[in-house]
Simulated scan of single mutants.
Amino acid sequence: MLHAMVVLPVRFERSPRLHPMLSEQPHAVGTKVVVQGKRGPEVATVRGEASEPHPSERYGAVLRAATPEDLDRWDTLHRAGEDLKWLLRARARERRLPVKLVAVEFTLDESLVTVSYSADERIELTSLIGEVRAHTRARVNFAAIGPREQAQMLGTLGACGRENCSSTHLQDFAPVSIRMARDQQLPLNPEKLSGPCGRLLCCLQFEHTQYVELLKNLPRKNAKVCHDGSGACGKVTKLHPLAGTVDVLTEQGMLVGVPATELRRAPDEGPKPGGDRGSKAPRQRDADA
């Protein structure tokens, strides 16, 4: 009896990214399967329920549920890859190659070995091919990866105390800009805004859309405003988007926190806050250093 093809999301060991694979039958979540991916046959884990394939999408294939023999061989190849990685690291140090060998991975049939590495500049690693071929007949592929991919593969702890997002749940590396930190009123301290990979924190993007919306209801920093109740006027020194308040330095030299809804623009500042804000971008231009 023929079964309708289904799509299963599977995850490889060194990445949280889910890869859709065509399968002749569904497999339970958590099942180890042998898949045919871009590099060749590998062992992966089913991480979601089966769904119907989309005609316009291209998929890899689930070949079968992994047998005990498959898992034993996969474990043996994993240990061989770890041993080879440490050997290559030693040889790279001997030859003073400015490179970090991150991972060495075999396909299940040992036809291909992928050496993932990180380097600050373009580097030639042909001198290491002989070292690899002395231990395996597999075809050798050197793959350069960036700092974020390196953190994803190795796994690190973030400033929050949890394992970094890139190795736990992120499916793609979305662009992260310093503007996101400004919009969230964060101190522009590179040490606090950078993750273990040395790049801007991926989590800055998670709440940015909400902050953009909240900032539409706040005056700009350094804007001159007056309080509706007291009539006191002053300059906005700090924004608190989540609370909907701003700090105002009054003309009398007092620093007060005021709800944005109780403020109006000073006579020389044009229209009242909230009355002329478009929906495209927040009006804030500066952030605390």
Rank of each mutant, 00 (worst) to 15 (best):
V7P: 00
V10M: 08
R11C: 06
F12T: 04
P20W: 05
S23C: 08
V34N: 01
V35H: 02
V35Q: 01
Q36C: 08
R39A: 13
E52L: 12
P53Y: 01
P55S: 12
S56T: 15
R58G: 12
Y59A: 06
A65T: 04
T67F: 10
D72C: 10
D75A: 15
L77Y: 03
R79N: 10
R79S: 08
L84I: 12
W86Q: 14
A92E: 00
P98M: 06
V99T: 07
L101Y: 00
L101A: 05
V104A: 15
S118G: 06
S118E: 14
R122C: 03
L125P: 11
L128M: 04
H135F: 11
T136E: 05
R137D: 05
R137H: 05
G146M: 03
R148Y: 00
E149F: 04
L154C: 03
G155S: 02
G155Y: 03
A159C: 08
N164C: 15
H169Q: 11
L170T: 10
Q171L: 09
R179M: 11
P187R: 07
P187C: 07
P187S: 02
N189E: 04
L193C: 07
E207P: 02
Y211T: 00
E213Q: 13
L214D: 10
A223V: 10
A223K: 13
K224S: 13
C226I: 10
D228V: 14
G229E: 13
S230K: 12
G231D: 02
G231R: 05
A232Q: 15
K238Y: 13
H240K: 05
A243E: 13
T245Y: 02
V248I: 06
T250N: 06
Q252T: 15
Q252P: 03
M254L: 13
L255C: 09
V256L: 15
P259E: 09
E262I: 02
E269N: 13
E269Y: 07
P273S: 10
D276A: 11
D276R: 12
S279I: 09
S279H: 14
K280Y: 05
A281W: 05
A281P: 00
Q284D: 13
D286E: 13
A289K: 09
